[in-house]
Amino acid sequence: MKKRKKDKEKRKVSEKICDCLEISSDILSDIPRFTINDNREVQIENYKSVIEYTQENVRLGAKKYEINISGEELTIVCITDEQIYIKGKIAKIDYIF
């Protein structure tokens, strides 16, 4: 309970700094950042883990939720600790809380 509260405070501080400086909030916090090119490519930074991978579905774990990318012929072109690069015919991106 205490940790969650601490996290909440921390987030608030970082959010406040971002608001003050008028900069994007992803710079100071580790929230997922998406870069989508058409429906062909998606690059996600600050993800946590790969939960499920099939040709139709890629389910990724983030800090507070799961990201579900569905489509056809999905391939993970490159995967590192910080980012994942997915190619294919992307149909939908869902947030699962």
């Binding site: 040709q55 391939t75 995967i79 590192t80």
Partner: peptide, 9 residues
């Protein structure tokens, strides 16, 4: 930190 790429099911 082991790089893997071109992952396909």
């Amino acid at each position: 930190n082991i790089l893997v790429w071109d992952i396909a099911r």
